[in-house]
Each structure stands twice: as structure tokens, then as C-alpha cells.
């Protein structure tokens, strides 16, 4: 179903030789990312919120008795947990970078 190489999304030929990585021209000519990081983070937080709310709804339904699918509830909970973990890790990295900047001697 999934081709292991093409699933990465980057064809191997487009990566290019290693020697061109260090040249300043290629770095200066690189396109800036179209969407900024804050937008991405806000979108991710929104996504996590949606998933937690969905899991919460399903837990309520299970408690009330309208939904009897235990594994579906557990899977929703795990999905919410994983998304939250991803955002937490991103937050950790950002904070770490910020603190490194603040500790810089001037």
C-alpha cells in the first residue's frame, strides 16, 4: 500500500550532493517557508484541542451508554495523548532554544 521510499515525500535525486550544502549561495537563495511557525503551532494546538474534545465526548457517551465501543474510545484517547505529546515536545524545544539565546553572553 505504501511505497517505503516515495512515502517520505522527497525523491532521492532532489536532495543533491553533500558538497553543495555548505555554500552560502544556496543558503541565501533558499525560499523562506510560506507558513510561519506560529501559524503551524496554533493549528497544532487547535488540532490537539479538537482531539481531546472528541475523546471527552466519546468517554461521556460510553459512560451514558449510547456508545459501547470501548476500543474506539481508547484509540481516540491515545490519539489525543500522542498529539498532545508532540506539541509538548515542540514547546520543550522552543523553550530550550529560547533559554539558550537568553544565556548568551554579550
Amino acid at each position: 500500500m505504501i511505497d517505503p521510499v516515495s512515502a517520505v515525500g522527497v525523491p532521492l535525486e532532489s536532495i543533491g550532493p553533500v558538497g553543495s550544502v555548505g555554500s552560502l549561495e544556496s543558503a541565501a537563495g533558499a525560499q523562506p517557508p510560506t507558513a510561519d511557525f506560529a501559524t503551524w503551532l496554533a493549528q497544532q494546538v487547535d488540532d490537539v484541542n479538537t482531539k481531546i474534545a472528541q475523546a471527552d465526548t466519546q468517554v461521556r457517551e460510553l459512560a451514558v451508554g449510547t456508545n459501547t465501543n470501548i476500543h474506539q474510545v481508547m484509540i481516540s484517547l491515545e490519539k489525543a495523548h500522542l498529539s498532545l505529546e508532540l506539541v509538548m515536545q515542540v514547546r520543550n524545544k522552543v523553550l530550550e532554544a529560547y533559554q539558550n539565546m537568553m544565556q548568551m553572553q554579550v
Binding site: 476500543h71 474506539q72 484509540i75 491515545e78 490519539k79 500522542l82 498529539s83 508532540l86
Partner: peptide, 14 residues
């Protein structure tokens, strides 16, 4: 996150 497709497949099996 692409890992959620694995979860969906497992959910279908369950």
C-alpha cells in the same frame, strides 16, 4: 500525523 492511519486500520480490525 501519519501514524494515525495505523490506528484507524487497527480500529477497523478490532
Amino acid at each position: 500525523m501519519d501514524i494515525s492511519s495505523i490506528f484507524d486500520i487497527s480500529a477497523a480490525g478490532m
